[in-house]
Design a protein around this nucleic acid. Structure first.
Lengths: 338, 338
DNA sequence: CGGTAACAGGAAAGCGCTTACCTCAACGCT
DNA sequence: AGCGTTGAGGTAAGCGCTTTCCTGTTACCG
């Protein structure tokens, strides 16, 4: 057993057939072959522990069978959930999924787009908020179209695009739902624990919140921080200190909401809080979080479906995924003792 | 711009040079080239938006530059954390990471091992508990050695292996820590919310718990369920119903511990509970979970380090990663009103 | 029984790169 | 002047597969 990998030629030689025949048998081609030879080749494959070189295969038959996925961080429950949906349908289509974590660094996004392009993936799904405006964003757009002109398909999730298929969660509407809920409970002084200002997700959710505020003739106190638990804790602490009169806060995602709960606990305060995304953790904290649910898995599924389905015509397809308010125990009418 | 992808030959033609020269320039080979030609080639690359075909490259220069990772499910916080560590060091070594979710299905593990093998990855890291005994396990072992004889390297995390490098979390010791903690607090009737009995992780942690029980002359009531929050809730409900005298429970991971908290809440009971893994959620539930901490990220880092470092000699290397008990508010002395 | 169609299998041309080897010219040396 | 060097670039042989022809058999038909 030499150090070299066994090749098709080795198998063919051992079975006393041509590489053509060996290839046909191994791939279950439609060409008819005697059982005799089939057996010999299969035996050789087993004995040599032959595993075909995927790169050579890709090169020879120039079909693309993998799909790439760009997410900020699969470890983040938000993206984990989306990724689950992506994987499900990709696997159902027999595609291999290559996941790339960009950690919200535009440079990494560019790098990965090229890398996936180089690997001849059939499609790329870009999940996650884009930036409101930046050179990187247009550069990214460039690379994406370059990929598309080679026959690759692109679908984006929660990122505005005028050229690619997109599936958009109802961030603005969800923000409105959260705001309306709080105002209808009678709260008049509400704070917002927002994510990074440059992200479109933050902007969209905030817009919905502001629309609700205007509809009720109120205004919001907004503090920005990272979309993390600790970010939420810090932002809430700041809100509590600077605006003691607040009776409710809206967090732009559940991680931040959990942080908000922690901040309130340390401050000995007890405001209503509404989260966003309805992550699994929402029902396990105390009080259980009222939250705006986004069907994340479905978001992923739809996106992958778009990416894998050839477009009917050239116009980019857009799908909107609705949001829904899930009421739990973290919000209550203003009259209740705070 | 035809539908076909631009190739090196296209670039060379457009720049009026040979493909050899083009290749050298693009890859920054050491061979000297006039600035004139370099400029022409680079211009052609830009104009054609040329991106080299990774498969052709892999085939030509037969070096392996990617590494594969097999995990049960990246969405699971436990594996997400490990994966983070794996990625960090892989990226530091300039390797591309291919993540494969096996969803604890042995068949999928086999499939992915072959797939990674076919893709000529430099190494494979298998993360996650193996099965106490099964045909699949030996079959898996077979494929792994097949991969290794072709020059690939393998490292496993938390899975016993006599042939590959391994990094082992202190599951048994951690179990002992959890048990000892409870017994030292005076509890005498403790239940265990365990994961699937067939997993080595369950077996190891349970072994530690039993060792602690014996050391204190006690016995444990064990119920098995899935390693999930819902599994933990169900198992705890069962425990509560069948053994009303229990005053404490040890959950074999934090997800189950969270489920245990939920079950106790619905049952109106209030026992001490100790979790395992010290996931981020541990500090955000009420009461905050006492838990056995395993440095998961480090586990991943060490494993990738082993996988990427050629072994000094042929003997498999084994690293042990210690566990530590983190005390929070979910455990208390028996004397306190339950 | 000659002719043809269906069959089994092989030869070889790529797929898009990298790289060992070769060529050609200009240069410097004795 | 003759010759070995060196510099700059090209030629072409693969890397390991797939697949399109192409060849030699065998079976079947009138």
């Amino acid at each position: 057993m030499g150090v070299g990998v066994a090749t098709l030629a080795d198998v063919a030689r051992r079975a006393g057939v041509s590489t053509a025949t060996a290839s046909r048998i191994i791939n279950g081609s439609s060409k008819p072959v005697t059982d005799e030879l089939r057996a010999r080749v299969l035996a050789a494959v087993a004995e040599l522990r032959y595993v075909p070189n995927a790169h050579a295969q890709m090169l020879a038959r120039s079909n693309r069978n993998a799909v790439g996925v760009l997410v900020h961080d699969v470890s983040d429950p938000y993206f984990a959930e989306i990724t689950r949906g992506l994987q499900r349908v990709a696997t159902a289509h027999g595609r291999l999924v290559i996941i790339c974590n960009t950690f919200r660094e535009p440079a990494r996004e560019l790098e990965y787009i090229d890398l996936l392009h180089a690997h001849q993936v059939a499609a790329i799904v870009v999940a996650g908020s884009g930036y409101l405006s930046s050179d990187d964003e247009t550069e990214l757009h460039d690379r994406m179209t370059a990929f598309e002109t080679t026959g690759g398909r692109i679908a984006v999730i929660g990122r505005h695009s005028h050229t690619s298929d997109a599936v958009l969660p109802a961030n603005e509407e969800g923000g409105y739902l959260a705001g309306a809920h709080l105002f209808e409970l009678g709260h008049t002084a509400v704070g917002v624990v927002a994510g990074p200002a440059a992200l479109t997700t933050t902007a969209d959710r905030l817009a919905g919140l502001h629309r609700a505020a205007e509809a009720h003739g109120r205004r919001l106190e907004v503090v920005h921080a990272d979309f993390t638990r600790d970010g939420g804790e810090a932002a809430t602490a700041k809100l509590l200190a600077e605006h003691p009169g607040l009776t409710a806060v809206a967090a732009l995602n559940d991680s931040m909401a959990v942080g908000a709960l922690a901040a309130m606990r340390s401050a000995g305060r007890n405001l209503s809080v509404v989260g966003f995304d309805d992550m699994p953790i929402a029902r396990d904290v105390t009080p259980a979080l009222t939250s705006v649910r986004l069907p994340l898995t479905q978001l992923g599924e739809r996106a992958m479906e778009l990416a894998l389905t050839p477009p009917a015509d050239s116009a980019p397809r857009v799908e909107h995924i609705p949001a829904e308010l899930i009421r739990r125990e973290s919000t209550w009418p203003l009259t209740r003792p705070s």
